[in-house]
Amino acid sequence: MKKEICKISVSSNWLGDEYIFYEDHTIKRVYDNHSLNSNKTEWLEPHQISKQNMDKLIKACPEECKEEIMHILDYP
């Protein structure tokens, strides 16, 4: 089983958008397209995450995980 580092929510409205980071550097995104199409899941590589979303993720990241998440995302 994958060991989770942290979950980071970047929801900007009532639709969910959460990223889950794992120790093996995999990233799972759980999000809602709309109220009738919720909890969609996708596995992402860091290069698939927009710069804007990376900024949001780092801003919302718990301080104790920030360095590791920045490393996984190859964030400047």
Rank of each mutant, 00 (worst) to 15 (best):
I8K: 00
K56A: 09
I27V: 10
H71F: 05
L36R: 13
I5E: 10
T41N: 06
Y22C: 11
M1W: 11
M54C: 07
L57K: 06
C61T: 09
D32V: 00
S9L: 02
Y75H: 07
E18I: 15
K7T: 14
A60M: 05
S12D: 13
M54E: 14
I58L: 00
S38V: 15
K7W: 04
L73S: 05
I72T: 02
M1R: 12
P46I: 00
K7N: 14
S50I: 07
D55G: 07
I69T: 03
H34V: 01
K56T: 08
I72G: 02
P76T: 03
K59F: 08
L73R: 12
N13Y: 13
H34L: 02
T26W: 04
S35R: 15
S35A: 12
L44V: 02
P46K: 08
E67L: 01
H25M: 09
S50L: 03
S12V: 14
D32I: 00
Q52S: 10
E23K: 14
F21L: 09
S9K: 10
K59G: 01
N33H: 07
Y31Q: 01
S50H: 04
E68Y: 08
N37P: 04
D32T: 03
I58V: 14
P46H: 12
E64S: 10
E67D: 15
E68T: 11
I20K: 13
N13A: 06
E4N: 08
Y31F: 15
L15D: 15
C61P: 09
K66E: 09
I5T: 13
I72M: 03
W43C: 06
S12F: 06
I69M: 03
E4H: 08
S38W: 05
V30Y: 02
W43K: 07
N37I: 05
S12T: 11
K28E: 11
G16T: 03
C65H: 13
C65I: 04
R29L: 00
S11V: 05
E45R: 12
N13T: 08
W14M: 09
S35P: 09
I58E: 04
I27A: 09
N39T: 11
G16I: 01
V10W: 06
C6A: 06
K51W: 05
K28R: 12
K59S: 11
H47A: 09
P46L: 00
R29S: 05
Y22R: 03
E18Q: 15
I69Y: 06
K2C: 11
N39S: 07
D24G: 10
V30E: 12
Y22L: 07
H47C: 06
K3T: 15
E18H: 07
S11P: 08
H25V: 10
L36A: 06
I69A: 01
E18K: 12
I5M: 13
K28I: 11
E42W: 04
I20H: 13
E67N: 09
H25P: 01
I5S: 11
M70S: 12
N33R: 14
P76L: 02
L44R: 08
D74M: 02
L36P: 07
I20D: 02
K51P: 06
S38D: 09
M70F: 05
C61G: 06
